[in-house]
Design a binder for these strands. Sequence first.
DNA 1: CAATTTGTGGCTACACATTTA
DNA 2: TTAAATGTGTAGCCACAAATT
Lengths: 468, 468
Amino acid sequence: MPVNSFEHYPMSWKPDKKALKRPFYKSLASLLEQDILNGFLASGTKLPPQRELADFLDLNFTTITRAYKICEVKGLIYAVTGSGTFVAPNASRSITISIDKTANLIDLGFVASFEQTNAIVKDVFHKVVDKSYLEQLLNYNDPTGIPHQKTAALNWMESFGIHADQEHVAIVSGAQNALAIALAALFEPGNRIATDLYTYSNFIELAKIFHIQLVPILGDQFGMLPEELEKQCSQINIHGIFLMPSCSNPTTVMIPEFRKQELASVIRKHRLILIEDDIHAFLTAGIISDYEQPMFNLLPEQCVYICGTSKSICSGLRVAFMVFGDALREKILQAIFNINVKTSSFDAEVITELILSGKAHEIVSQKKQLAKSANDIYSEYFPLNETVGHPLSFYRWLPIQGHNDVLQLETDLKRHSIRVFHSDRFLSGQTTPDKYLRIALASTNSLDELKTGLKILKQYLNPKKQKA
Amino acid sequence: MPVNSFEHYPMSWKPDKKALKRPFYKSLASLLEQDILNGFLASGTKLPPQRELADFLDLNFTTITRAYKICEVKGLIYAVTGSGTFVAPNASRSITISIDKTANLIDLGFVASFEQTNAIVKDVFHKVVDKSYLEQLLNYNDPTGIPHQKTAALNWMESFGIHADQEHVAIVSGAQNALAIALAALFEPGNRIATDLYTYSNFIELAKIFHIQLVPILGDQFGMLPEELEKQCSQINIHGIFLMPSCSNPTTVMIPEFRKQELASVIRKHRLILIEDDIHAFLTAGIISDYEQPMFNLLPEQCVYICGTSKSICSGLRVAFMVFGDALREKILQAIFNINVKTSSFDAEVITELILSGKAHEIVSQKKQLAKSANDIYSEYFPLNETVGHPLSFYRWLPIQGHNDVLQLETDLKRHSIRVFHSDRFLSGQTTPDKYLRIALASTNSLDELKTGLKILKQYLNPKKQKA
DNA sequence: CAATTTGTGGCTACACATTTA
DNA sequence: TTAAATGTGTAGCCACAAATT
C-alpha cells in the first residue's frame, strides 16, 4: 500500500491503478501513450515525478523510469534531470512534411524549388535518350553510380569546396534518402544525435523511425553554440551531429567560417559523426562572402557530406550525392545496397548531362533570380532583419506572437487558403516560448500567387494594422 | 570470488577478467564481439552458459544475459533455450549481395534478370520524353505515384490476382526499397519476424539494420510448415512474417494454395503482419497450375504486398508497387515520405508506358523464354528433381556435400572465375547440416557464358566424374 | 553553497518456460 | 516422466549526476 495519500496533492496524471496489468512497465507506458494520443494530456504538461508516481501506484520507482523511457523513445515525452518529465510538443501527431495538392491551397508550407525551371530539364531528356549507351543505364550495374556520373558529381561539388575521389562518393535517391541511409548505416537504436533546437522536421521523423534520440543544442545568429555542444557532449554520450551549415532549415541561419572551426574542434574532440546536409550549397558557395568551405573539409574522416540536386536542379529526379571518409565507406555502401539496391542510372544520367552541358548552372541562376524576387516580395510584407539568415533562402522564419496553439493556427490559415507550418513542428526537443512560422517561398505556382498568399497571411497575423 | 575453479572444465571462451571495465555488460559484449570478428570464435562455437560464465567472472548471471543480448541483436550469436548460446553462421561478415563487375567473373551469384530484354525498353523512353506532360513528371507532386500510373500498376497486378484502389497502392523505388519501407513503417527494434530457414539474404541484412530479430521456421517442399509457425507463435511474441509464396529465394519453393490457406489461418490467429514479396508473380500466375492467388487476398488487412518490376520488366528503373490494407496505410505513407520523399515520376512513367503499350508483356514472355532455356541448360549439368521448386526460376538451389567452409568454397570458385553464393549466406538463424549453392541463371552476358560457368562449376564440385 | 528534487544507468534477485538427458 | 540445464523477462535496489531552490 502506498505510504501517503495523494488526494490533497493533485497529480497531473493519475493512471487507474486497477488498469495496470503485468508487466507493469509496459502496461503503464501504454496507458500513458493512450492518454497523450487521446489528448487528455496536452503538450508541455508536467508528468508526476518518477518517485511520486511510484509511491502512488505502489511500485518501485525504476519501474516508472522504464515506462517513461518507452514513451520517451517514441517521442511522446521528454525528461529533464532536475526539473521533471513533460509531454513532448509533437507527441500526438506526425510532423512529416510532404507535398499536398489535394486541397486548393496556396502552399507556403512544403518547400519546393521554383518548379518553373523544369522546362530546361525537358530538353536534356531528349539528349539522354539518344545516347548510344542508353541500354547500359537499364541494368543492375554500378549501384553507386557510373564512373562518368560520379566524375560529374565531383565536378559539381568542386565549386562548393568538396574534393574527393570515385571511391568516396555515391549517388543516392535524393537528400532525404541520403539521410535515411546515413542513419541506418552509422547509428544504432538508442544513439544520440545533436541538432539545432529547431531542425528539419523530416529529420526528426527519420530519427524517430530509427529510434535515435535528438539532443537539442542552443544556438545564436551564427548557428549552434560550440560551448553548448561541448557541455552536452561531456555530460552524456552523443554519437553524431546533424548540421546544415549553408542555410539551416527552418531558421535560415548560415554558419560562418569561425564558427565552423569551433564546432569542428568539439566534434573532433568527441569523435562525433557529422551529417552535413549541404542542400543549399548552390545558394551559398561563391555568393555569400562569409562562406569558405563545407565542414566536410575540416573533418573528412568523420563526416558524411550530402549534396542533393532536388532543390538546386530538379526535384522530380531523385538524385543526391553522398561523400564520405574511408572509415565510414563500407557501412554506407552496405546501407545503400540494402535500402536502395541502386539509384536509377537514367535519372543520374540526366543530372549528369545537365551538369556537363552547363544547363544545371543555367537552372541554378534562374532559381537564384526567382529566390531573389521571392525574398524581395516577402520583405515587402515582412521586413527582413538584415543581420540574420540567408538572403536567398527558399523559405523564411517569421517570429509571431500570441499563437501558441499550433494546430489551431495551421487550421485557421488553411481556412484562409494558406498552407504554412508552425515552429513547433521543427522542435527537436522541449518547447520554447518563442514562436515562428516557416514561410516557403518556392512552392507557389507563380510569384503573384506568392504575393496573394503573403498578403492574406499578413492580414491574418496583424488584422488591426491592415484595417488602418 | 568465484565459488568454483574452472581450470579443469575448459570453457570455449574465457574472457580476460582484468579487461572488464564498468559497465560490465557493455564491456563484456564488446570483448565478445572482438573475439568473434577476429575469428577467435568460429561459427557454431558454443559459448559458456550464462551462469557458468557469471560464476567465472564473479558477476550475476543476468549481467551476462545482457552482454549476450547485445551481441544477439547484432546478429553475432543466437541463443536456444535449453541448449545454449552459439556463434552465428554469418557473424563475422556482411552477407549483402550486390552486383560486382570489378573482377572478370562469370556471375552465378547476384541474381539479375536476363538484361538482354532491355533493348525493348529503350524504344519506350523515346515515347515518354515526347509526352506533352513530361514537365509534370519533374516536380514534387504525387509522391506515391500519379493516378494514371497507379491505375497501370493495379492493372498490371490484376493478372496476379490483386484487386485494390488508388488509396491502397504506392509506387516505391524497387522491391528492396519496399522491404526497407515496410520494416521501418511497421516494426520496432526488438520485434520478431518469422521467415523460412533459408531466406533472401538482403532481407536478413535489412532486419539487422532495423534490429529486428528473425525467427527461422522449418518448412517442407510446400514451404513453411503451419504447425511450426503456430508452435513458435504460441511460445514467443512474433510480430510479422516474411514470405515469397510465388518462388522463395533462395530455395525456389512455391507455396500451393492449400498451404497458403493453412498459413493464413495461423497468421490471422496471431495477428502477424505479413510481408508478401511477390517479385516472381510474373513467372507464376497463369503459368503454374497450382497458383491461385496471392496471400494478400487471404489477409488483406494485415498484409503488405510488394510487386517489384526489376526482375519482370527492367532492373535499372527502380520501381516497385506496394499494396496494403487500410490499417497499415498511414504508417506506410509516412515511411515513404521519410525514406524516399517520392520515387522518380519519370521512371514510373516509363514502367507505366511499358505496361499500357503491352511491351511489358512482351518483355515478360522473352524473359520466360530465356528462363526456360537457362533452366534447360542447367538441367543438362545438374539434373532437376522434378518434385521441388519453380521450373522457371531465375536461380537454382543446388545441394552439395563436403564443403562446409563457406568462405573457402566461394573463394575457391572465384579462382576458377565463378561467382556463386553458399547456402550459409541465406541462413536466418542457426546453421544446418545440409549445404547448398544458389546458382543464378539470369546474370551472365549470354546463355553460352552460363554454359561455361556451369561446366566449370560441375567440374569443381565433382572432379572425378569429369575425368572419367 | 548546501540540501533537495528528479532523472540515469547498472547490477541483482527471482519466477518461469523450454529443452535436454 | 522427472530432474537438470539453460535462456527469458520483469521488478527491485542503489550509487550517482544534474538541476533546482
